[in-house]
Design a protein around this nucleic acid. Structure first.
Lengths: 217, 217
DNA sequence: ATTCCTCTATTTGTATACAAAGATGGCCTG
DNA sequence: CAGGCCATCTTTGTATACAAATAGAGGAAT
C-alpha cells in the first residue's frame, strides 16, 4: 500500500462521480480523515488534486466543496468534447490498424447485443456506459495524442457526463449505437473527414439529450 | 501574504517558464524549502499543483523533476492550440462588442509600432510576447467559455510556447502581426469562419517556426 | 426587532517529527 | 578485478502539533 493519498483520491473521486457526494457538499479535511482512519495530510493532497481536475472547488481558508455544473457548463463541455473527440477521430483514422478496427467493431457488437437484452435498465445501462467509455477511449488511444487524451479526460470528469446513458431515451440510445457503427465504418474506409463528422454529430446529439433531460428537472 | 503555497507555486512556475530551472532538473522538496525559508509542506503543495498542470513530473517516492518536451510534444501542443484557439475565434466573433474590437485593434497598433522600433531584440521581444498573450487572451475572454480558456492555458504552460517570439524570423514576425490584424478584421466583419481560419493558420504557422528552429538545435 | 459587533468554536494553513522507500557507496565474494 | 549484496544516508510520505483565519452564535445598541 504505497500511497494513501492516491487511494483516498480515488475514493473521493468515485464518490463524487457516482453522485454519492451531492452537489456543492462541503468536504472537511478532518472529517474525511477520521472517517478513513488517516491523517489530514493525504486527504489534503487528494483534495488539491481533485481541485486541479475541476471536480471540487477550493477557496483559500474556506475549504473544498464538490463542484457544481449548470446547463451552460454542460453545453460548454459537450461543445468542446465534440471538437476534441472528432479531432481524435481524424487523427486516429489513418493510424488505425486492422486489429484496432476489429476491436472497435467488437465493442459495437457487444453494445448492440446489450441493448437488445431483456435486462432492466439498471442492469444494462452501467454496462453500456462502461463499453461506451472504452469505445471512445480506444479511439483516443489510436489517435496517439496523449495531451488530447488528457484534455478530453478533464472534460468528462463530470458526473453527468459520465452518466450520459442514464438519461438516454431508447431512440437516442439506438442512434448512439448507429453512430458508433458508422464511425468504425468510416475509419475502416480511411475517410477521416467522414469519421470526424459522425463523431461530432455523435457528441452534439448527446448534448441535446443531456440538456433536454436536465432542463426538464 | 495570505498563502505561502501560492507564492512558492508562482516562484517555481516562473523559474520553470523562464528557463531558469533547466530541463529535467530535480526538485528536492527540502532544498526548495530551505532556500525559500519555509517548511516542506507548502513546497510540496506547490509541486503537486505544478505536476497537475504538467510543468513538473513526479514519480512516487522519487520526487519531482522539471518536465521535458520533445518535438512531438510541441507538434501536439500547437496542433491542439490551432483547434482550440480557432474555436475561440469562432465563438468570439458574434459576441465581440465594438469596444472589444477596438481593444484588439489597439493591441495590433501597439505590436506593429513595437516591431518597427529600433530597440534591440532583447528589449522588444518580451514586450511583443506579452502583448501577444494579451491579444490571444482577450479573444478567449470574449469567447466566454471558461473551460476553453483553461484548456488552452494548460497547453501553453510550456516554456517554448511562452517564448515563441524569441525564435521568430523577421518575416515570421511580420506575418504573425498581419494575421492578428486579419483576425480582427474578420471579427469586425462578423465572419466567424474567416476569423477562425486565420487563427488556425496563425497557430500552425507558429508551429512551423518553432519546430524548424527546434530541430536546428 | 434589526443590525452590527465581538467572542468562541471550527477549520484551514504551516511547521515539525517520524516512518518508509530509494539511492549510494563500500565491502565481500567469486 | 567485476559483480552483487548489505549498510547507511538521503528523500519522500504520513502523522501530529500549532498558528491563523473564518464562520456562527449571542448579545448590545439603535
Amino acid at each position: 500500500m504505497a500511497k494513501i493519498a492516491s487511494t483516498v483520491y480515488e475514493q473521493i473521486r468515485t464518490a463524487i462521480l457516482s453522485g454519492e457526494l451531492s452537489n456543492s457538499e462541503r468536504l472537511v479535511e478532518e472529517d474525511l480523515a477520521v472517517s478513513l482512519g488517516i491523517s489530514r495530510t493525504p486527504v489534503r493532497e487528494a483534495l488539491r488534486r481533485l481541485a486541479a481536475e475541476g471536480l471540487v472547488d477550493v477557496s483559500p481558508n474556506r475549504g473544498a466543496r464538490v463542484a457544481e455544473w449548470d446547463a451552460d457548463d454542460l453545453r460548454e463541455i459537450f461543445d468542446l468534447r465534440s471538437i476534441l473527440e472528432s479531432h481524435a477521430c481524424e487523427l486516429a483514422t489513418p493510424r488505425a490498424s486492422a486489429a484496432e478496427i476489429e476491436f472497435l467493431e467488437n465493442i459495437c457488437d457487444e453494445m448492440e447485443a446489450l441493448a437488445k437484452t431483456a435486462l432492466s435498465s439498471e442492469q444494462r445501462l452501467p454496462a453500456l456506459a462502461a463499453k461506451n467509455r472504452i469505445f471512445h477511449g480506444k479511439i483516443i488511444e489510436i489517435s496517439n495524442s496523449s495531451r488530447l487524451g488528457l484534455l478530453i479526460e478533464t472534460l468528462i470528469h463530470v458526473p453527468i457526463v459520465m452518466q450520459t446513458y442514464k438519461v438516454y431515451s431508447p431512440e437516442a440510445l439506438e442512434r448512439s449505437l448507429r453512430h458508433h457503427r458508422e464511425i468504425v465504418t468510416a475509419m475502416k474506409a480511411g475517410d477521416e473527414v467522414w469519421a470526424a463528422s459522425v463523431m461530432r454529430a455523435h457528441v452534439l446529439a448527446a448534448r441535446e439529450e443531456v440538456l433536454g433531460q436536465n432542463e426538464a428537472d
